[in-house]
């Protein structure tokens, strides 16, 4: 197992390096100058050159990139051009907020999605099943930022139950978590339903029924655990959706998280900050998928991790 984890981590290194390389190339081929962005268009050329020198922007691109990679490997992501604060600190300050948002959204999504999926599968083709599957597909189709705006409108402005922007207390997190979570609940419900329907037709379920177990025991003890494998895959695949969804959600609800930070970094052309945020997000994504793969082995001992 440990061998497997180590090997997976080693294999993901080229992917991470590739992601940083793509980011670096894109940052440098696109028109626009971060220094002009900092000092304004009317600064004198000498000052501009001095700043470029200080930031290392006058070095050849290869040197700039290698410097970034070696520093990053030692955990040093450099300092933000715009604020002068270390990038790792800026990420460290904002990530917990996004993590809280993401985890609460996951919680909403799993509770809602798995329970709807189970009921739909057990009562296949019932009115509940049909209507829930339509609602779920509609949920997947609705743009997250629009759902966020409508939630602000209904639960914030009309009903006044929740604050509609900022992040000062747990109460501020409820609406964003529900908005982000219900979207994923929809796809989890669909996958839980179809996975459970697959499993219910297996021989070992017939055996479980034949030995006289209650329907509840059959579903919850025998079927559900096996049906969870595809669902766990979806959880992993949604990790990136959750991170990108948090950009839009944080932007609508004015939550100071990683999503808003990345949006800001891109708009300000803050190269080190952009590099840092992208690198961080890619690593989270890769680790998330690794955790998903490891959890397969726990759910189904027949799957051997090789």
């Amino acid at each position: 197992m440990i061998q497997y984890i180590v090997r997976r981590l080693i294999f993901s290194i080229p992917v991470v390096i590739g992601v940083t390389l793509i980011t670096f190339v894109l940052l440098n081929v696109v028109p626009g100058d971060p220094v002009l962005e900092m000092v304004g268009k009317h600064a004198d050329p000498q000052t501009i050159n001095q700043i470029r020198e200080q930031l290392g922007l006058n070095d050849p691109l290869v040197i700039q990139y290698l410097r970034f990679v070696f520093n990053a490997a030692r955990g040093d992501l450099g300092k933000s051009f715009k604020t002068g604060i270390p990038v790792s600190k800026m990420i460290g300050d904002t990530f917990p907020t996004t993590l809280k948002l993401a985890l609460s959204a996951y919680l909403v999504a799993i509770i809602l999605g798995v329970s709807v999926g189970i009921i739909s599968a057990v009562k296949q083709y019932s009115l509940f099943d049909h209507s829930m599957m339509i609602v779920a597909l509609a949920g997947i189709s609705a743009p997250v930022f629009w759902v966020a705006v409508i939630a602000q409108l209904i639960f914030g402005l009309k009903l006044g139950w929740f604050p509609i922007s900022g992040y000062y207390s747990v109460k501020h997190m409820i609406l964003p978590a529900i908005v982000l979570g219900t979207r994923f609940a929809a796809s989890i419900a669909r996958y839980t339903r179809s996975a459970l329907l697959d499993v219910i037709r297996q021989d070992y379920i017939r055996t479980a029924r034949a030995k006289g177990l209650s329907e509840r025991a059959v579903i919850f003890i025998h079927a559900l655990k096996n049906a969870m494998i595809p669902v766990v895959t979806i959880l992993g695949m949604q990790l990136s959706g959750l991170l990108t969804g948090s950009i839009l959600t944080e932007s609508v609800f004015a939550i100071p998280g990683l999503g808003r930070l990345s949006l800001w970094a891109l708009s300000e052309r803050d190269y080190p900050l952009v590099q840092g945020v992208v690198l961080f997000t890619a690593v989270i994504y890769i680790l998330g998928n690794l955790i998903v793969d490891i959890s397969y082995a726990f759910l189904n001992p027949r799957i051997r991790l090789k």
Partner: peptide, 23 residues
């Protein structure tokens, strides 16, 4: 396929946002 893997690991909306800022 390695290039495809990298693009897959790239957070897509972040990529679009970056491209749109740039272009």
């Amino acid at each position: 396929m390695r290039v495809a893997d990298m693009l897959f690991a790239f957070p897509d909306l972040l990529f679009y946002i970056g491209m749109m800022f740039a272009l």
